[in-house]
């Protein structure tokens, strides 16, 4: 049964993909492109592009896209479910262990060291996103003066909205609408 194969193969990729995000791509590529030839390399690279502009983690997107291609919507569901299944079991086990043993000296030490690391990673994500919003590139812009004005306006208004205690979802939706309105205005 193709659904079971999809589930198991993607469960394997999910279990062994450590580091998240792009780190998971070689594993998925090994299964989807090299081993089973479900997707061509070109289609696989397209998933990268799509993931840049659609919601969702790249691993989940790849599982969905490949599953659809191979066995339709049920294939997408099987592959995606397989991909996150190991995380689900492992996550609940780790959470249980955390609440049982999280206050033991060495574990507490490790977590105390990791908490600032998470703060640093969130700050890093913030900087990457500022570059993307203002200069449309995640790398350092070559011309700092070439600011995307539309991005700047929306970013500023969104920050004001958050400071005025607007919720997460209104800010996201409002920014999307603003992007459309300013974009259309710019065309004239």
């Amino acid at each position: 049964m193709i659904y079971i194969i999809l589930f198991l193969e993607f469960a394997k990729a999910g279990l062994f993909c450590v580091g998240g995000g792009y780190a998971s791509m070689p594993l998925i590529q090994a299964v989807v492109v090299d081993q089973y030839h479900w997707l061509s390399l070109r289609e696989f690279i397209d998933i990268f592009t799509i993931s840049q502009m659609t919601p969702g983690p790249i691993g989940v997107n790849a599982a969905t896209f490949a599953g659809n291609k191979i066995a339709g919507i049920l294939g997408a569901v099987s592959a995606t479910a397989g991909f996150v299944f190991p995380s689900f079991i492992l996550g609940i086990l780790l959470a249980m262990l955390f609440y049982k043993y999280g206050d033991i000296g060495p574990i507490r030490g490790i977590l105390n060291g990791l908490r600032p690391a998470v703060v640093a990673l969130i700050i890093g994500a913030g900087f990457s996103f500022i570059l993307l919003a203002l200069w449309n590139s995640e790398a350092m812009p070559s011309d700092w003066a070439a600011v995307d004005l539309r991005g700047g306006i929306i970013l500023l208004l969104a920050i004001i909205a958050i400071r005025k205690k607007q919720g997460v979802i209104p800010v996201l939706l409002g920014s999307g609408i603003l992007g459309l309105v300013i974009g259309i205005l710019q065309q004239y």
Partner: peptide, 18 residues
């Protein structure tokens, strides 16, 4: 255009949390 706008909104939220 919509995606660009939402990406800017997400930026503001991330910066705020950071």
């Amino acid at each position: 255009m919509i995606l660009k706008g939402m990406q800017c909104g997400a930026t503001a939220l991330i910066v705020n949390v950071a």
